[in-house]
Design a binder for these strands. Structure first.
Length: 420
RNA sequence: GGAGAGAUGGGUGAGUGGCUUAAACCACAGGUUUGCUAAACCUGCGAAGGAGGUAACUCUUUCCGAGGGUUCGAAUCCCUCUCUCUCCGCCA
């Protein structure tokens, strides 16, 4: 949610920001509605003050057994005006909220301006593309050939975009997640949290998925929604709270399934387990003081990159341009891992600084020098477990169709050298 | 799922229609004094807004779980909902 005072004071800058995100100019309209709201409010409050005065007088007169007909008549008049103004104020406030809640965050000054994915900017890379002396297979070829990955059964049970992992592959998924969690909790200072996978619409509003993106979500009825990412419950842990400054920075992590309807992705990535309705992810979330959020984004990116380095997987980091960035983000880095089977880089993590955009929506503040300040929130994948599994299958495959186990994962996988 | 009891500031907790401008205590912050691992005393201490002023500030509205209603006036009365606790039932 945007700070109305900022829009009031910087309408041109605000519209320019929105333009880079594909929105039309709207500051003028917002300011007008806000003005109408405040005018109604001011007049109403003056009348309320008058009513309160009169009520006190009436109380006093009654206790003295005196006549109150004049005062009662005055209050009756006031009441009608108050009700009319109250309705007007509510109307204008609803209008304002409807607009503000659907506008994306203002990009950071360091976010490159652009409309499409192609305009994302290369930030850095690590490692090299591996050399194969045979034609590397795609992850689902390796999976299906070994009979450990099955899409038909999953489709029979749940429809398209689901998968079943069996035996060693199912266990391998678990090993990858455990490795990530151990690293983030033991070395990177994140506190592991077990969160609900169903949340209320109010919670999704706080992180920005609602009201605008309900089509991307699965609902379970009764105001319960399946989480599209653990970012939603983790970021919301301290909603409607005033934290003490010494609770910051707060760093939390969670390993959860994520559920996405992939409504806009019809026909895209239909083969394999790259784009599923359900996948697992280790998520990182930080709540920090405003001055620290830029540094925290770099730190978080390093935590996510560290996993890929440990796994010796080649990747590049892209800075997303304004048009490709998510709704709540001020700045986002995508980590794209190299997939030799596909001969492509593919997103495996996305780390975003949301500034105070989410904390305003969910009302998370901290107290410093007697002031209540909105925290800055950050989230990042550390990493998407399913896609990490894909990356290992494709990068560590051998000619005979087996897969070598990366050194750091062996202790999570009964010290085996190969997948099967 | 059934029955009962509750929800008041950071915490405990008083408050059954106007004398509450939400008491008191604890915690916290600042200060004074005594003098030493502390005590006593004083002061301050919830949130979100609006109007005025260059400003320190002043005035004012709303908020006692949430939303409606009654009333000149609601923490207090009425209705709906949510959550918590206790007991019973069911259950991994």
């Amino acid at each position: 949610m945007h700070n109305i005072n900022y829009i009031r004071e910087n309408p041109t800058e605000f519209d320019n920001s929105m333009k880079t995100r594909g929105e039309k100019p709207i500051a003028y309209k917002i300011i007008n509605i806000d003005k109408e709201k405040r005018e109604a409010q001011t007049v109403m409050q003056n009348l309320l003050a008058e009513r309160n005065q009169l009520s006190k007088i009436i109380g006093k007169l009654k206790s003295e057994k005196k006549d109150t007909i004049n005062e009662m008549a005055k209050v009756e008049d006031l009441k009608n005006n108050i009700n009319t103004l109250k309705e007007l104020e509510t109307l204008k406030d609803d209008e304002l909220k409807a607009i503000l809640s659907r506008l994306p965050n203002i990009p950071d000054s360091s976010t490159p301006i652009g409309a499409y994915e192609e305009e994302n900017v290369f930030y850095r890379e690590w490692g090299n593309k591996p050399n194969f002396d045979f034609e590397p297979k795609l992850h689902f070829e390796i999976g299906e050939n070994s009979n450990l990955m099955n899409f038909e059964i999953a489709t029979k049970l749940s429809g398209p975009r689901f998968v079943i992992l069996k035996g060693q592959l199912s266990k391998f998924e678990r090993a990858i997640a455990n490795f990530m969690l151990d690293k983030h909790t033991n070395l990177n200072g994140y506190l592991e949290i077990h969160v609900p996978y169903l949340v209320k619409s109010e919670t999704l509003y706080g992180t920005g998925q609602l009201p605008k993106f309900s089509d991307d979500l699965f609902t379970a009825g009764d105001d319960h929604w399946l989480i599209p990412t653990a970012e939603v419950p983790l970021t919301s842990l301290c909603s409607n709270q005033i934290l003490n400054v010494n609770q910051l920075p707060m760093r939390v992590t969670s390993y959860t399934p994520c559920f996405r309807s992939e409504a806009g992705a019809a026909g895209k990535d239909t083969r394999g387990m790259l784009r599923q309705h359900q996948f697992t992810k280790v998520e990182l979330v930080s709540l920090v003081e405003p001055e620290q959020s830029s540094d925290e984004l770099e730190r978080m990116l390093n935590c996510a990159e560290g996993i890929l380095k440990d796994l010796n997987l080649h990747y590049r980091v892209m800075t997303l341009c304004t048009g490709d960035m998510g709704f709540g983000a001020k700045k986002t880095y995508d980590i794209e891992v190299w997939l030799p089977g596909e001969n492509k880089y593919r997103e495996i993590s996305s780390c975003s600084n949301c500034g105070d955009f989410q904390s305003r929506r969910m009302n998370t503040r901290y107290k410093k020098n007697d002031k209540n300040i909105y925290v800055h929130t950050l989230n990042g994948s550390g990493l998407a477990v399913g896609r990490t599994l894909i990356a290992i299958l494709e990068n560590y495959q051998t000619l005979d169709g087996n897969v070598k186990i990366p050194e750091v994962l062996k202790k999570y996988f009964d010290n085996q050298d190969t997948l099967f």
